[in-house]
Amino acid sequence: MDFYQPTSLDAALALLAADPEALPLAGGATLVAMMNADLVEPSALVSLRDVAELQTIEAAADGGFRIGAMISHAALADEARLGGGNEVVRQAAARIAHPQVRNIGTLGGAVAHGDPSSDLPAALVAADAAIEIAGPAARRVVAAENFFEDYLTTALKPGEMVSAITLPVQPEGAVGHYEKFARVHGGYATLSVAVVLAMAGGECSHVRVALGAAGATPVRVDAAEARLLGSVLDADAVRDAAAILAEASDPIDDVRGSAEYRLMLVPRLLGRALAAAEGGA
């Protein structure tokens, strides 16, 4: 296996274009674990460690953020500027695994891997983030909601890389909250709920909700949010919205919980997530 350590994004893309069996290496939290288990055997690794363009968090003039693909979960969890609605992303990063894995794993690696039981995808969909993709020929941007296509399958085409994630300006007064339910601290979610909520005069004036570990991709439904909008987040509204989300979910049975159990968690966790966000809104 060959190993390259380019110092620019263009050089990394050229190396990937030259060898279709080569893979980008972020922290290696998934890739090295898979190599250790003999599940993948790349011909070459293109380490992104020294690609400076991927290592920064920039606050945009308009109040949004651009976060480089190589930012670790630990750095994201510590980013105090991510408040308001974008707090949902910071909270999700803080709930990933344990300190050791948060120091290794990266935003770009987690997004590119596209594991529906991981924490960042649902949070990015709730925050209405966009994924910046760099390819050998062109750069493009895909909304997080359209980026996760299926189980471990994303909009990335061969030779393309995630270069950054952008977070929009959230509505005035919005609060983000990430509610994760796992069997043990640091475990993968049995189910999670990411919300961005704003209230005006006691009524819900903005809401985006995405479920994690509820299907092959994050689950978000317009009708569920429509049911909550304009309501006072009363029990009926929350129950109806949860029913719509559960209807659109297609969770799996695994060691973290049965599909039936996960569906049962939807109304409970949605209620908790909205209450927590409302408490801060």
């Binding site: 350590q5 290496l25 922290g27 090295v32 674990a33 050791q100 894995v101 120091n103 290794i104």
Partner: peptide
Amino acid sequence: VDGMPVNACLVLAVN
């Protein structure tokens, strides 16, 4: 690694 705890089994020596 630079003062931060990591799982050495997930880190490549060349990295």
